[in-house]
């Protein structure tokens, strides 16, 4: 016997067939105890994160409202356009509730635009809304424009089984670590690109687009233990 988790409604990037949502998840008995991980779904590659989380055994839902945010055990801040997501967090009154949950110890995995949003400071003059919490100063588009976007393999501390297969797309990097409790798990050209500060994890690349789920698996394992 199994129970079917209520599937999300159609999400950008999803099948166009309507009847068979590929994101539907069937969990075996007992797996209802799996952590419920939200993916902030204001804009960006939400679907790729939902799929990666489900592949590693989490229950995953999109988060568009404060009510949905209140229910999740952990949150993913996806890739996308950080200025857009930040403005929408403010306009839909999600920024303060999200900051409050992070202050209360909500585990967060942030990739690319997510890493920018989770940073305390940015290396730029123009202001943009940030969630903050991760004590780093980050630089947007640090590797250049789209022509400089790249695929690579990268060793990440704590991720076994060889280098990760990752894509850096108009990616940021950490310019400066602002507190002692931030661990650097991977670097490119001497700049941190994967960092961890307790339950806050951030990667400058997109593990969700390459199908290398090991970072998601490690994050979900931490959430289970938290």
């Amino acid at each position: 016997m199994s129970s079917t988790f209520v599937p999300d409604r159609w999400i950008p990037g999803e099948r166009l067939t309507g009847r068979l949502p590929a994101t539907e998840q069937t969990l075996a008995d007992g797996e209802l105890a799996a952590p419920l991980v939200g993916v902030l779904a204001l804009q960006g590659d939400v679907l790729e994160h939902l799929r990666a989380l489900r592949r590693v055994g989490a229950r995953a839902v999109q988060v568009k409202t404060a009510a949905q945010l209140a229910e999740v055990d952990a949150l993913v801040l996806p890739g996308g356009e950080s200025t857009t997501i930040g403005k929408l967090l403010v306009r839909f009154e999600l920024l303060a509730p999200l900051q409050a949950r992070i202050a209360d110890g909500l585990p967060v995995l942030a990739t690319c635009a997510g890493m920018i949003l989770l940073s305390d400071e940015l290396d730029q003059v123009e202001p943009q809304p940030l969630v903050g919490g991760l004590h780093v100063r980050t630089r947007r588009n640090a590797f250049g424009r789209q022509l400089d976007s790249f695929d690579t393999r990268l060793e990440v501390v704590g991720i076994d089984g060889g280098p990760m297969d990752v894509a850096f797309i108009r990616a940021p990097r950490v310019e400066e670590i602002l507190a002692d409790d931030v661990e650097v798990l991977a670097s490119v050209d001497g700049y941190p690109v994967v960092v961890r500060q307790g339950l806050l994890w951030a990667a400058a690349f997109h593990p969700e687009v390459t199908g290398d789920d090991r970072l998601h698996a490690a994050f979900v394992a931490t959430v289970r233990g938290a």
Partner: peptide
């Protein structure tokens, strides 16, 4: 489609990063 990179040498202009940027624009 491009094979996954076999070394740490970064590869630009791949199908994956081309399509990947569009993935980041979704919902926008």
């Amino acid at each position: 489609s491009d094979p996954p990179p076999s070394s740490a040498a970064p590869q630009t202009g791949t199908t994956r990063v081309k399509r990947g940027l569009a993935d980041m624009l979704k919902g926008g």
